[in-house]
């Protein structure tokens, strides 16, 4: 653990990622305190440029709403959707991958067919279908993003389980008469977990990008302050007031970058041999 921490703290990109991520989390936490008013309420004259008015450091959008307030409150939505959708995807992925990898045989065949079907269908298209069918409030969108993101973690978990299922410690557990569920979740899973946790950062980065793309197309929840919504709104005034779209886009870029850097830092710290690569 100590070596792991030292390995992580020593890497400059990993530290930059961590600081950026902490900054986004701080924005999300302080949003209610710094901008207590509804971020989607009218705040002032529309389309004021950033730094033009002391009350609106980042300017106002085409309906006269404070962009800074929307950025701070948007951090909450992006993190919330990112974390929850990732948790869903990783959880489903682990269960499917563990069952397939541990049991093999027809269970493996059926589950991998299903995974393959999900991977053959473009995931953004599936997301569109889910939104078309179930509507686009925040909960539905989050679950839908989780539902299209599980195949890759499932494959990863399965691969880990395939290499672990016949190790001596697993055979020892079987000899002791442990049940399958206990062997899978208490014995094998902890050994298979590190690469899956690292992969969670990729899932989270993609989840944030998927939500923002959906919001940009105006297919996500219009009643929350989301960065993607703001970019879609700013598109109407893109030719002159391009800052309305530019600012939330930068926020997405930095957040996704932070998540990827942290993931990479975790990976390097967990596999010190690969560091020189």
């Amino acid at each position: 653990m100590k070596a792991f921490l030292r390995g992580y703290l020593r890497s400059p990109p990993a530290m930059i990622g961590l600081l950026l991520l902490l900054a986004v989390v701080a924005m999300a936490i302080s949003a209610d305190w710094l901008f207590p008013r509804d971020p989607l309420a009218l705040a002032g004259r529309p389309l004021q440029w950033p730094a033009g008015h002391p009350r609106f450091p980042l300017g106002t959008d085409n309906s006269g709403r404070d962009i800074a307030a929307q950025i701070f409150h948007g951090a909450r939505i992006s993190l919330l959707i990112g974390v929850v959708a990732t948790a869903i995807a990783i959880l489903v992925g682990i269960v499917v991958g563990a069952l397939a990898g541990y049991h093999g045989g027809w269970v493996d065949d059926v589950l991998m067919r299903l995974t393959e079907a999900f991977q053959t269908l473009p995931n953004f298209l599936l997301l569109l279908v889910l939104v078309a069918v179930f509507g686009s409030d925040l909960t539905t969108v989050t679950i839908a993003i989780g539902a299209v993101s599980w195949p890759a973690p499932a494959r990863l978990t399965r691969a880990e389980f395939l290499t672990l299922r016949n190790r001596e410690f697993v055979q020892a557990c079987r000899t002791l008469g442990m049940g399958d569920a206990r062997i899978i979740f208490r014995e094998i899973l902890p050994n298979a977990l590190p690469p899956i946790i690292v992969y969670a950062s990729v899932v989270m980065a993609v989840a944030i990008l998927l939500e923002s793309a959906l919001a940009f197309l105006r297919l996500s929840d219009p009643n929350v302050a989301s960065w993607g919504n703001l970019i879609g709104l700013g598109r109407d005034v893109l030719r002159v007031q391009w800052y309305v779209s530019a600012i939330p886009g930068l926020a997405i870029l930095l957040t996704v970058l932070a998540v990827s850097l942290v993931g990479q830092g975790l990976n390097d710290a967990l596999n010190p041999r690969l560091r020189r690569r």
């Binding site: 779209s245 996704v256 850097l261």
Partner: peptide, 18 residues
């Protein structure tokens, strides 16, 4: 590569148009 990976494509497109 890291920055490109983190860039939302639609946003890059809009900025390229500008």
């Amino acid at each position: 590569g890291l920055v490109f990976y983190a860039t939302p494509s639609f946003w890059f497109g809009l900025m390229a148009i500008v």
